[in-house]
Simulated scan of single mutants.
Amino acid sequence: MFTQLKESVPMKKDAQAKRQSTGANKAPAAWLWLAGVGFTFVVALLGYGLAQVPGFNRVGQLACAILIAVAYRQIWGYPEAIRPGIQFSAKRLLRLAIILYGLKLNIDVVIHEGLGLLLYGAGVIVLAIFLTLLIAKWLKADTSLSLMLGVGTGICGAAAIAAVSPIIKAKDEDTAIGVGIIALVGTIFAITYTILRPILPLSPIEYGTWSGMSLHEIAHVALAAAPAGQDGLAIGLLAKLGRVLLLVPLCFILMYWMKQKGKVDGNTKIEFPWFLIGFIAMSIFGSYVLGKQIPVSDGFNNGISSLTTFVLTMAMVGLGLNVNLRDLRTKASRPLIAMAITSVLLSALMFVLV
């Protein structure tokens, strides 16, 4: 009996030491995770600051932050020690940003005033995806990246790419490249629109509709349509929001397509995009509760919009760190060409139709 007691004492000590050791290991891991999230925060902040510089302000903080992240990766490599926190930003914060993005979509306005524009928007989305993939196939470009660019062109740029990337099992590197390309090309188009505005034979409403139907991001539509005045800007944003609304059904169509085409193994399940439910919930909340049942100021709305963009920027930093420039030239050039050609054709067609 005494022997058993003696043996149990060291066993208890060993168990206690093991628990202490485990606790000691958790603390550094937690700090490293926080360091990873903090790293994406700092780079996103640098991207925001760079976007305030004349010239870079046309590109936007998303693209600026991705450029900084890509440059860091090429010079110092991927910060492996803090990878869990970086991946948290790239995955979880990305979904949070899409959920918050739902507040920008006023469903009530789209349904009551933009049903006709909604039908045009559906046509724009189908055309953008079809043309991009068709040209990409002709150029023998990467299909996954081309599909994301087609979706981004047709719907709402970076947010759309971020939403569909987990559904089509895209690589983080491809997602970051796609977001960078869509931000760059969309900015070039938006600036071109503002330059052409004075010489185009379009009324403010027609010009705003053209901008909302053919440009990539909501920010690009706001930039391009502003010179047309309040009426032009309002109709442009309405047209764009109709396209954003169609992001949800498109994601479910892509899920069905992935399963039907056998793009995943038989035993592999496509993760249900629960964040889209959050996107819809926030859209409903923003459309029927916030501002109606709960009065809010313009400052509050602008603050939420800025927060959403910054959270998305942190996610883009996490994705941008996966980009290897050595592979970028061969992998991204052809999808970029396909997307650029599609954007030009889409812009020309919408110009004729309006």
Results as ranks from 00 to 15, higher is better:
residue 354 V to M: 13
residue 264 V to E: 01
residue 45 L to M: 11
residue 272 F to P: 00
residue 135 I to D: 12
residue 43 V to L: 15
residue 160 A to P: 02
residue 207 Y to V: 03
residue 33 W to M: 05
residue 53 V to W: 14
residue 18 K to S: 03
residue 181 I to F: 12
residue 37 V to M: 12
residue 138 W to T: 04
residue 32 L to R: 09
residue 264 V to G: 08
residue 197 R to P: 07
residue 120 Y to K: 07
residue 301 N to A: 11
residue 45 L to Y: 13
residue 210 W to Q: 15
residue 339 M to F: 06
residue 287 S to D: 05
residue 182 I to Q: 10
residue 118 L to E: 08
residue 274 W to P: 08
residue 21 S to N: 14
residue 140 K to S: 15
residue 333 S to F: 13
residue 303 G to V: 00
residue 170 A to M: 03
residue 249 P to N: 00
residue 234 A to C: 07
residue 225 A to K: 14
residue 292 K to D: 06
residue 111 I to C: 09
residue 226 A to M: 06
residue 35 A to H: 00
residue 218 I to A: 14
residue 310 F to A: 04
residue 148 M to D: 10
residue 213 M to N: 15
residue 290 L to I: 04
residue 262 G to K: 10
residue 192 T to K: 03
residue 46 L to G: 05
residue 332 A to Q: 11
residue 256 Y to C: 00
residue 97 A to P: 06
residue 4 Q to I: 12
residue 169 K to T: 12
residue 288 Y to A: 00
residue 131 L to H: 08
residue 34 L to K: 04
residue 212 G to E: 08
residue 48 Y to C: 01
residue 16 Q to N: 03
residue 79 P to I: 04
residue 206 E to R: 02
residue 309 T to K: 12
residue 170 A to N: 04
residue 7 E to H: 08
residue 32 L to T: 06
residue 47 G to A: 02
residue 217 E to G: 07
residue 63 A to C: 15
residue 236 G to Q: 14
residue 55 G to C: 06
residue 173 E to C: 02
residue 174 D to A: 10
residue 326 R to Y: 03
residue 209 T to K: 14
residue 106 N to H: 00
residue 130 F to P: 00
residue 19 R to N: 08
residue 186 G to K: 01
residue 109 V to M: 15
residue 306 S to W: 14
residue 180 G to I: 10
residue 195 I to Y: 12
residue 221 V to S: 07
residue 70 V to Y: 03
residue 180 G to T: 10
residue 289 V to A: 14
residue 90 A to P: 15
residue 146 S to R: 02
residue 259 K to I: 00
residue 38 G to R: 01
residue 354 V to I: 02
residue 348 A to P: 09
residue 121 G to D: 11
residue 48 Y to F: 09
residue 164 V to S: 07
residue 322 N to C: 01
residue 114 G to W: 11
residue 155 I to P: 09
residue 304 I to L: 08
residue 85 G to T: 02
residue 92 R to M: 04
residue 125 I to V: 09
residue 185 V to N: 06
residue 326 R to D: 03
residue 137 K to M: 12
residue 91 K to S: 12
residue 94 L to M: 15
residue 172 D to S: 13
residue 217 E to T: 05
residue 245 L to E: 01
residue 190 A to E: 00
residue 196 L to G: 11
residue 228 A to M: 05
residue 145 L to P: 06
residue 170 A to Q: 01
residue 159 A to K: 05
residue 47 G to M: 10
residue 105 L to H: 02
residue 59 V to T: 03
residue 218 I to T: 06
residue 182 I to K: 02
residue 160 A to L: 14
residue 307 L to E: 06
residue 254 L to W: 15
residue 228 A to T: 10
residue 137 K to H: 09
residue 164 V to L: 07
